[in-house]
Design a binder for these strands. Structure first.
Length: 547
RNA sequence: UGGGCUAUGGCCAAGUUGGUUAAGGCAUCGGACUCUGACUCCGAAACCGCUAGUUCGAAUCUAGCUAGCCCAGCCA
């Protein structure tokens, strides 16, 4: 599963045809995030698709920060994005910025003016909007549309020279105000923004719009297949128009695919920011966040995410893949890789009456019963142990109950059979502890087969156990009703911190280390964990057919 | 009569020069196995949006229809 490959999909087919027909000889893709937010699981599809496709055909992929709007962008996001991509396991051939091409873009705009295909417009934003028309009515041409080339040249230079205030003028492409495709109704291609850019500082006060800049950037970099999401389908004709009219020597082509969503998961930058700013979560890397940083902290691995994305395929449909698919991908990835140890999340004390008080017996246990290479470790057994409280029931169990109850006998994994003989309650009636007897003949490894236990449960010996915190998560949001404010949809139980025990073998684990806690799930050591105060995040539970 | 995109089991998704029983994964339900009710292994489900055509034969071709999504930022 580690080397899952990209399945057949329409873009792969297009590339194969392009290569076969000689339309292109190489495959160069790019991932072009705007540095204004953290990357989330939805971006993973774009990243993985671009890199995998190029790699598959011996090509390369650039990381290009699409930073043409300085009001929203910040250098701190540049670093976070680089880190996420690196974490996913991809290395861009080049790292570029849209702002690297401002000079070139400017020259192409002048070329457009010289060809009579762009003009400086004095219309206010309101006028531009009003004259654009509606979905069913065509637009009206701006009075400035017939300005002379000389005037346009002079005015555009003045715009660049800072002679005008924001919004006083724009440069527009002269295309077709009556086009049914609103993107073609003389789109603004340059606007004035007197604001410091994270890269170019105050060198520029005019900035190209996405529709103009993007195709040029792709052409400059020699991108062969420019992949984007479905909402840009209507922009493709504009994309092609700019590449042609700007006389770009290389002609890139745009292809669109659907976004990948997960039910009940917020992917909007704005909402993600709200969650962080409101303090609903601890930050962009909160384990409950759908950001790559959040998934990383939760304990997701790059290959789990990669296999999930590849497993969902690719199509021209905005799809919503179930969270189970992602979870399965993680379990699948970790199954043979990590140690399986004992941890008790909700402890119930068990006293073994016929075992010598204070005596500790050590047993060898495999670190991973399906992967011998991971070796063995010692686990302790003694007079007092903890078991999961849900592994014991006071009420008469049904026939399929495979755990402990009064009168029933189970195996404490890797040690002895233990039989419950009595229970002790607290004053308030709650369960305090249970008493059992063990049978020395049933010692693990002796080949005892006289009788079968009523199940095998995990446990931790009390005197050697390490007390630890477990972060148990539930979905951050309670529903997907996008009409309700995000903060009203928060799940009050999204984080549940409980204290329990882990076996002594995990002593000294480093942050990020992953385990399967037998019968409870996959856990990862949280960033907040300290040697003397371990904190584990439950990355994902184990599947269970127990009803 | 604005334009564009899409429609395959609960969720993804192969399959489109028309041709035996429409891949696969996730989920679900049975069963086997098990010193994790895990894993593994068996077994189970499709009016291919609808309707009507073309054809010996259609998820694949034609026509009409329906539903969903996107577009009127000097955002990307």
């Amino acid at each position: 599963m580690l080397n899952m490959e990209m399945e057949s999909n329409f873009i792969k087919s297009i590339i194969e045809e392009d290569l076969a027909s000689g339309k292109t000889t190489t495959v160069i893709t790019r991932f072009p995030p705007e540095p204004n937010a953290y990357l989330h699981i939805g971006h993973a599809r774009a990243i993985i698709t671009n890199f995998e496709l190029a790699k598959m055909f011996g090509g390369s992929t650039n990381l290009r920060f699409d930073d043409t709007n300085p009001v929203k962008e910040d250098a701190m996001f540049v670093e976070a994005i680089k880190e996420d991509i690196k974490w996913l396991g991809y290395t861009p051939k080049n790292i570029f910025f849209g702002s690297d091409y401002f000079e070139e873009t400017y020259k192409r705009a002048i070329l457009l003016i010289n060809k009579g295909l762009a003009y400086v417009d004095d219309s206010s934003p309101e006028d531009v909007s009003r004259l654009r028309g509606t979905l069913t009515e065509s637009g009206v041409e701006s009075p400035n549309r017939k300005r002379s080339i000389a005037d346009n040249l002079q005015l555009f230079q003045a715009m660049r020279d800072g002679k005008y205030a924001d919004s006083e003028k724009t440069l527009r492409a002269k295309i077709d105000m009556s086009s049914p495709n609103i993107n073609m109704r003389d789109p603004v291609i340059y606007r004035i923004l007197h604001i410091t850019h994270h890269n170019t500082q105050d060198k520029w006060c005019i900035y190209p719009m996405y529709d103009f800049a993007h195709p040029l950037q792709d052409a400059i970099e020699g991108i062969t297949h420019s992949l984007c999401s479905l909402e840009y389908v209507d922009h493709r004709i504009l994309y092609d128009w700019f590449v042609e009219k700007c006389e770009m020597p290389h002609v890139p082509h745009q292809y669109e695919f659907g976004r990948l969503n997960i039910p009940n998961t917020i992917m909007s930058k704005r909402y993600l920011k709200q969650l962080v700013d409101s303090g609903a979560v601890r930050g962009y890397d909160d384990p409950r966040m759908p950001t790559l940083a959040g998934f990383r902290r939760l304990g997701y691995t790059p290959s789990a995410i990669r296999n999930f994305v590849l497993g969902t395929g690719l199509s021209r449909i905005n799809s919503t893949a179930s969270i189970e698919m992602l979870e399965n991908s993680l379990r699948d990835d970790l199954r043979l890789k990590v140690n399986r140890v004992n941890a008790v999340i909700h402890p119930l004390k068990v006293v073994i009456d016929n075992y010598p008080k204070g005596q500790i017996e050590w047993f060898d246990a495999p670190n991973n019963s399906e992967n011998e290479a991971l070796g063995t470790r010692k686990i302790a057994f003694g007079n007092e142990v903890y078991i999961e409280s849900e592994d014991f029931t006071e009420t008469t169990p049904e026939k399929h109950w495979k755990r402990l109850a009064i009168g029933l006998e189970v195996r404490l994994m890797h040690t002895y059979f233990v039989k419950c003989v009595s229970v002790v309650h607290n004053d308030d009636g709650s369960l305090k502890e249970i008493h059992c007897t063990y049978d020395p003949l049933t010692k693990s490894g002796t080949g005892f087969t006289e009788r079968k236990p009523n199940g095998n449960i995990h446990f931790v010996e009390a005197s050697t156990a390490i007390i630890t915190s477990f972060n148990l998560f539930e979905p951050l949001m309670v529903d997907s009703d996008n009409d309700r404010p995000v903060l009203d949809r928060l799940n009050p139980n999204s984080l549940n911190v409980v204290k329990g025990f882990v076996e002594p073998s995990v002593k000294g684990v480093k942050i990020g280390t992953q385990f399967q806690f037998i019968r409870t799930g996959y856990f990862t050591v949280d960033y907040d964990s300290l040697p003397e105060a371990l904190v584990f995040n439950r990355t994902v539970g184990l599947k269970s057919s127990f009803k």
